[in-house]
Each structure stands twice: as structure tokens, then as C-alpha cells.
């Protein structure tokens, strides 16, 4: 595969290099906050990337994707609360639970289209939200503090901020590589064909439902893992992390960064969270500035940040 040095590839290389080198910068300056901020950015970029798989490539407009963050987070939180802190137990359970939830939700929602699909995914996510909020034993509305991060038998220490950062980064890189393989595979072609023209896909002989459902489950599982990372990062889970506005945040990252672009969600997550951080120091009404900005992206730069970088290649 040819890798030409257009603006987008340069941006990707720079961003990835900065992410890899960040702990070095932190070690020199002692700016611990940057490490915390970028750990969060990387985790949410992973979540946004998983949403991009179904939203950007599959055309499935899920408005309930944050539910998987919450499910992954709560799987870790609840197990830790009950004394099971081994990551080798926790994380397979995270994968199983989020995959199962996606399978149930997807098998119902994917029978519908358009607005109905959006509303159904939202409804399921809100259902999960209220169930979690009702778990009095696990903090209910107030959430649940995680006193011990996932243990991996001494192989890696998640309480070490730098080790944890690199673990998250490894997940991000793994997610990027996996997404790339997936998108270009036969499976990926089916998912994208179905976004483009599902009727025709069936006419040429694809039972599209099962492929879209598989995509939905893969995306949900990936987001569940992001949730497990997030829970370890904040050492706290609460129903708020799966409220529907969190789903919107993920969607904003995808749209801002560039739907259906491999690196778009990463760009989007960085842009949104850095923007949020910078502006919230100026005013607590930072969303007043973000709103119009998003409007501009939707109106004039459909491809988001990734799209802008690509079209700038001739400049």
C-alpha cells in the first residue's frame, strides 16, 4: 500500500508520535494533568472509533453507544466491589457482557431504519441507565468508587499512570489496526455496501441483517473495553457515564473528526476534549462556542477534520 505524504498522513504521523512521546514530556515538565487528560482522550477515542465502525462505515445511527462505556465500566466496578479484582476475570466478563447486550439490542433495533433505529438504540441505552441507577447495592445514582484497579498478576501495574497510559495507547493502536483490517475485508465491504444501498445488497444476494448485527456487536464490545479502561482511569463509575448525552458526545467526536474515516474519531476526540478543556477555563458556557463550530463542520466540512486534511492535499 502506498503511503503518500499528504496533509492527513502527516497529521496522523504527528499525532501518533505526540501520543507515544507524551509521557516523556510529562516526565520532563512534571505536568501530570496532561497525562490524565490524554489518557482520557485516548480512551474516548477508542470508544468513538467503535461508534465510527457502525455509524461511519455501517450507517447505523446509534444514539445509545455510551451504554457500552457504562456496561464495561460497571462490569469492572461491580466485580471490584465484590472483591474480584483480577483483570483476567474482569475483562473477559466485560467482553462477554457488552457483546451480549449489543447482540440483544442489535437484534431488535436493526430490524428498523432511520428515526426508529435511533429512538430504539436510545431507549435501550436509557433502560440500561435506569437499571444501573437503581442498583442500590452498587451506589445507585451516586455511583461506585473503585478502590483497586484491575490486577494483572504483576504483568502490568494499572495504578502506575505511565503504564496505564501505554496500555490505553496499545488498545488504541490495536483498535486502529483491527478497524483497518475489518473495513477493507469482505465483511467490511458488506457493511459499507449496506450503508450505501441495503436494498441492492439483498438483491445481489446478501443476507445483510446478520452482517450488520455482527458489526453492531463488534462495535459494542470494543466500546465496552473502552468502558473498562475508563473505569480504571477514573476509579469511579456512575450512571452518568452512560447517560444519553454521553452518546451524543461520542457522536460529536465522530462527526467532528470525520465519519467513515479511520483516524477521524481520534482527531475528533482530541479536538473536542482539548477544546472543552481550554474553553472551560475561559467560560463555563463553552458549549455555546462548540455548538456553532459543529454547525460549521456539518455545513461546510462534511468529512470533518480528516476530510479537511485530505482536501488540503493539493494546497
Amino acid at each position: 500500500m502506498n503511503v503518500s505524504l499528504d496533509w492527513r498522513n502527516i497529521a496522523v504521523i504527528v499525532v501518533l508520535a505526540v501520543l507515544v512521546a507524551l509521557p516523556l514530556y510529562v516526565a520532563v515538565t512534571g505536568d501530570r494533568f496532561m497525562l490524565t487528560l490524554f489518557t482520557r482522550i485516548i480512551i474516548l477515542a477508542l470508544a468513538a472509533m467503535s461508534l465510527n465502525l457502525i455509524l461511519g462505515y455501517g450507517g447505523m445511527m446509534s444514539l445509545g453507544h455510551a451504554a457500552y462505556l457504562g456496561i464495561g465500566g460497571y462490569a469492572v466496578g461491580i466485580l471490584a466491589h465484590d472483591g474480584i479484582t483480577s483483570g483476567f476475570v474482569q475483562w473477559p466478563i466485560v467482553i462477554a457482557v457488552s457483546a451480549l447486550f449489543a447482540l440483544v439490542v442489535g437484534s431488535m433495533c436493526l430490524r428498523t431504519r432511520g428515526v426508529y433505529f435511533i429512538m430504539l438504540t436510545l431507549a435501550f441505552a436509557q433502560m440500561a441507565y435506569y437499571i444501573v441507577a437503581g442498583l442500590a447495592r452498587y451506589g445507585g445514582d451516586d455511583g461506585l468508587t473503585i478502590y483497586k484497579r484491575s490486577q494483572f498478576a504483576g504483568l502490568i501495574d494499572l495504578s502506575n499512570k505511565v503504564q496505564f497510559y501505554y496500555l490505553c495507547l496499545a488498545f488504541l493502536f490495536g483498535g486502529l489496526y483491527l478497524s483497518r483490517r475489518l473495513i477493507n475485508s469482505r465483511f467490511g465491504m458488506v457493511i459499507q455496501g449496506s450503508r450505501s444501498n441495503d436494498r441492492r445488497m439483498q438483491a445481489i444476494g446478501f443476507p445483510t441483517f446478520r452482517y450488520r448485527l455482527a458489526g453492531f456487536v463488534i462495535a459494542g464490545t470494543m466500546c465496552g473495553l473502552a468502558g473498562a479502561l475508563l473505569a480504571n482511569h477514573t476509579e469511579f463509575v456512575s450512571p452518568a457515564m452512560m447517560y444519553w448525552t454521553r452518546s451524543v458526545d461520542l457522536m460529536v467526536m465522530v462527526i467532528l473528526g470525520g465519519m467513515g474515516s479511520l483516524f477521524g474519531p481520534l482527531f475528533g476526540a482530541i479536538a473536542l476534549l482539548v477544546f472543552e478543556e481550554a474553553l472551560s477555563q475561559v467560560t463555563e458556557y463553552w458549549q455555546i462556542i462548540l455548538g456553532p463550530l459543529l454547525l460549521l463542520v456539518v455545513l461546510f466540512a462534511r468529512g470533518g477534520i480528516a476530510g479537511l486534511l485530505t482536501s488540503g492535499r493539493h494546497g
Binding site: N184, S185, R186, F187, G188, V190, F206, Y211, A214
Partner: peptide, 9 residues
Amino acid sequence: SFRFWRDAR
């Protein structure tokens, strides 16, 4: 088409 790895193109 549950083939996730090889580049279809």
C-alpha cells in the same frame, strides 16, 4: 462474508 482479515480489494 464473515471474513474479517484479508483485503477484499
